[in-house]
Amino acid sequence: MKKHLGNLSLFCAATLFACSGPLAAQEKVLHIMDSGGEYADALDKCIHEPLLKEKGIKVVQETPGGYAKMTAQAKSGVITNVATDGATGDMFRLSAEDLAEPIDWARVGGDAMFDEAKNKFGFGASYYSTIMAWRSDAKAPANFAEFFDTEKFPGKRALPDYPEFVLAFAAMGGGMSVEDAAKGVDLDLAFKTLEKIKGDTIWWQSGAQPAQLLKDNEAQYAIAWSGRVLGQEGVSATYNQGMLDISWWVVAKGISDEQKDLLYPWLEYQTKAEAQKCLLDYLPYPGPSPELEKIVTPEVLKTFPTSAENKKVQWLINGQWWYDNAKEVEKRWNDFKLLQ
């Protein structure tokens, strides 16, 4: 009797294992990863639902994405997620470390895109800026030198907890000119500034946080992504000295042909100006279509990082420098953050 019990349990366990294995991929599912939140919602509504209707491709999003997860995925050998979103720096790193698949632009097809958004290793999905913002009832800073001056402009600062989004500004706060900072950041200057105001700093990790912190009066000044602070009640912002960047889709190296069959229709759909216009309802980050400007209202156009008047006061991030100095940045950032 006991012996039978033992055999029975072994059999059950074996069956369980077999059944719990991944179901053979019958339907067409594209796995991607991104930063989630409102962006994910926007993608679902504007890109993924129509895509499912038109092409029968289901897109599953995983959060978060980023450089570290791509590395992990590559290390494990199983490429689950086909693409990730990332800033220019991430794209540089991934391509330099041979983790990015080149994009066959001929195969993407679709509508026209700005040339700068068509990179060998990245699909430029949207433009966004990192700009300075403040509570409307606080003293307005004109530039980043003033932004980091806590004596003349008292109050707490909400800063992004990401080196690539704050170090350049901190360097400017320490006296570096915008042109020089765009080429490469003086790390000593940057960290000196951050060290000086560290008692007044609140670090944020999620895009929605800085606006909330300003509204709650936890911080009076913030560096935030443009879409999160423009048009918010009680919050003022300016594109002046802002950092313009493109959010790329980077494709993982070594994806299968089946995965490629799902990838390209997805990329193609995102070239449509209408789809990009839809995204604007959620987050004011314009897509790469030249037609976009023509189909939006002038008020909305004013918020674009890429509109003429906004573009001219901003600067573009130098991806190469960030890649070259990645190790040093990491070490110094680590030491700074962990030694507070």
Binding site: I202, K337, L338
Partner: peptide, 20 residues
């Protein structure tokens, strides 16, 4: 903590998710 009081688990987050 506002990013100013990292403890062991937060440090691990940095090491795993950011800097790999």
């Amino acid at each position: 903590g506002g990013g100013k009081v990292p403890l062991i688990a937060n440090m691990m987050d940095l090491l795993i998710n950011r800097f790999a």
